[in-house]
Nucleic acid binder design. Structure first.
Lengths: 195, 195, 195, 195
DNA sequence: GATGAATGAGGGTTCATTCAT
DNA sequence: CATGAATGAACCCTCATTCAT
């Protein structure tokens, strides 16, 4: 029973497991408390309410996510290489944590509009990283000048997200990281042969 | 009070309005009935249960959606033109029905896994249209041979979906259709200048 | 489709079948109407409300029941013989109509107090027949003078009823009429050897 | 507000009162909770669902019932005396708790087949006591050898039950215990003078 | 800090009955 | 006489949150 982790983290990790295994709507506070090995009431010493658990979960996990991606792309010089690293790391990190993949791709989306807006706030950090890559690419001539950064970011994020979601919905049966190269190629070169 | 529309359609239209204005979790059957101008019990003469209203709503609206898109692209010869029409029609149709846009992009996603799976079934019709365009493009040499159709489809759908969702979340403040050309350009030509 | 029977009887017979096959709480008016081959609304041309169907059902069937029993015992001279005939006819009639047995022994008892009071009114005709047998028996010296007629009647009816109910609950697996003699013997001679 | 009784008992007692005073179909969970002085939700900390309240009620009360009867007849040597005690105690216990009498004789019988089957399970304990008395009586020569135990039990239980029900339906206007002797006499000696 | 028993608001669905045709 | 579409009241149960210990 040695739980070195502070209760705050203990509870968030418990929430990920409970939500992944039971689904968003079956993830009662009491279940999370049980999984975390604390009393129901204890939850409320660390979180304002249930929504706060979920936002914190997202912040905590997404924070690590962004840190690792930034770490990874720091060493790359080209925007295209950075983009490759981002896709690769994104796929890799979610492949390594199946529970987290289910929670972020499927379950947390069932939350109401308010919660999703707050989750979007957290997501902005990630989207800023993408924006930076695109801007850098435009500046150094790798990417086309006329690109609309927001649209390009929506393509990149939308595609990655859709790809991961499809993979999760297929019960993670194939290797997500096998798709990195092809996704990157699509981003950089598009569909057309005419280029 | 002249209601020419059959009750089935009346109720679905009412559901769209109620869900758009109140949110998925605040869309009680009694509210939908009131909006439709019928008694609560009447709902159950036309729908098996509440979930059935939502699935039917999606089928009905998405059915029209697909029909109109197919109609639109039928006249186009090039895959690239067809893709343009698809994006354009997708954006146009949702721009013309703000309520429906809110419902499909935000609210219906809060439904539970069962409902989402049934909604995905309906979506397949749309995704098949996209797949067809990509395959056709590969065959006639417009698109690259080595394209992975599923991935390309995920890019197209993921991007369009993300674009619309962002637009809805920004309260539909700008004109979605203004983005058609740029989205299409991204799909066809990618990010890179190197082409 | 030749339905010679008047609708009134048609509906009562339908009610017996529907209740026996679906249970009291699953015997909706619409089901009875369907079984009777009439529209829901038609029921209300012949019966005041649902309760009226059930009371009428009981009156109609119990009326025949009493008539047949009275017919049967008319020819008997002894009270003991009359009692035997009554038991025998009671068992026989219910054995011959399994649906009716289920309805009267199990299903109709689930009705509310009001309905049961009205059913008891109908039952009085039957109980009067029993009372008459007992009184006659006392008068002609067959039965003991000191008998409390009401109690004796409660014994006879309670025992017969319990016996039939047990038989119905055991899915009518054995022959009810095989018990006539032993039940009669119990009534007449009691448990004791001392007599 | 000193409520020494555990909540479980508190709720069952409340259920007896509410059902007796309002009838089975008007005994809403919220009414029972109010009568018990607890919140609606508290009910579900002690009972799985509404049916569970009713089955538990029957088990709890019938358990006491059987215990007291067994206690009472233990000291009697004769089967006839035991039978007398059983009738007497049965009548006495229900006379002392008018609410319980209404609930067991009238209201609980309106429950659906499932619940009634579960109630019958509980009843078996009582019926076994009766069977034992009859068997003992046969063995020691008090009762006739040729008696069918099941039939004799059906007579005893059916008669007692019918007697109590009639008494309850007559609003418990007369003293039930006044009938003990006569009922016992009927059981032992039967109707006939010929003995 | 930690507990967990208690709270109580909220909604999908059924079905007897009506009444315009 | 007959129809059957429409009505609308009524209730069990869950679970996030609190607070006395």
């Amino acid at each position: 029973m040695r739980q070195k982790k502070p209760k705050y983290i203990q509870i968030i990790d418990a929430a990920v497991i409970v939500i992944a295994e039971n689904g968003y709507h079956q993830a009662q506070v009491s279940k999370i408390a049980k999984q975390a090995g604390v009393a129901d009431g204890t939850i409320y010493l660390y979180f304002k309410n249930k929504e706060d658990i979920l936002v914190s979960l997202f912040q905590e996990k997404m924070g690590v996510f962004i840190e690792k991606i930034e770490e990874e792309i720091k060493s790359k010089k080209n925007a295209a290489d950075k983009l490759y690293s981002l896709i690769d790391k994104h796929f890799t990190l979610l492949s390594e944590d199946h529970h987290l993949a289910i929670v972020t791709q499927l379950e947390l989306r069932q939350s109401n509009k308010d919660l999703r807006l707050r989750i979007n706030e957290v997501l902005k950090g990630y989207l800023n990283v993408v924006d930076k890559i695109i801007s850098d690419g435009k500046e150094n001539g790798e990417f086309r000048e006329e690109l609309d950064v927001r649209l390009a970011r929506q393509m990149i994020f939308g595609t990655i997200d859709e790809t991961v979601t499809t993979w999760v919905m297929n019960d993670q049966k194939y290797r997500l990281t096998d798709q990195t190269k092809k996704v990157h190629d699509l981003f950089v070169n598009g569909l057309s042969t005419k280029n």
